[in-house]
């Protein structure tokens, strides 16, 4: 325990931040995606340390199981032959870095000002998967349905956008020819 920070938290935080840094700096896109997965796993471990079991396992299921795989698929589908010849960072990388550092300084300043003393952690809220399910089916049933519609629309839309268009659609060609 250092300043009340547990060793487990320290290790998890270092893993998370290092994964994010590796995603920012590595040249190979597949390596970036893998270090992104490490960051997602570290964040899931942080959720578990905060006593949010359901959110932690959702994080593993959704991010490591779906989003990371999606990112790898996108990288492999869009990768040309071999390493691209262009530079990895944009020409205005210095400005971006300065903006990011300024945002972190602002956030760190706000955190340091707002929490001078250790806020006593109250007893862990007794949240079971059962109570989450009951709340989703009663109090939060409208947001749940809206999210269900949103996910359906987004996934159908993503498939339609990414679907290859047929080169010479018959009806489309006639319609454009008529105009």
């Amino acid at each position: 325990m250092i300043f009340g920070i547990s060793i487990a938290f320290l290790l998890t935080a270092i893993l998370t931040v290092l994964g994010a840094l590796a995603a920012a700096l590595l040249k190979n896109l597949v390596h970036c995606a893998l270090s992104l997965t490490v960051t997602f796993a570290g964040l899931a471990l942080l959720y578990l340390q905060l006593g949010a079991q359901f959110a932690g396992f959702s994080q593993i299921l959704v991010y490591i199981g779906a989003v990371a795989i999606l990112v790898v698929f996108a990288i492999l589908l869009t990768r040309g032959a071999g390493i691209p010849e262009y530079r990895d960072f944009s020409s205005s990388w210095l400005a971006g870095l300065v903006i990011a550092a300024a945002v972190f300084a602002l956030l760190g300043w706000a955190v340091a000002r707002s929490f001078p003393a250790n806020i006593a952690a109250s007893a862990a809220p007794a949240v079971t998967v059962q109570s989450i399910g009951a709340a989703l089916m009663s109090t939060y049933v409208l947001p749940l349905e809206i999210v269900a519609v949103l996910l359906t629309v987004a996934l159908i839309g993503a498939v339609i956008v990414a679907m290859p268009e047929s080169r010479t659609p018959k009806s489309g060609a006639e319609a454009s020819g008529g105009k």
């Binding site: 931040v17 994010a20 920012a24 262009y86 944009s90 903006i99 990011a100 972190f104």
Partner: peptide
């Protein structure tokens, strides 16, 4: 930690091509 991850994400979004 959240601020660090956010800043790194912002740096990635602003600097990578």
């Amino acid at each position: 930690v959240a601020a660090l991850v956010f800043a790194i994400g912002l740096a990635i979004a602003l600097t990578r091509r």
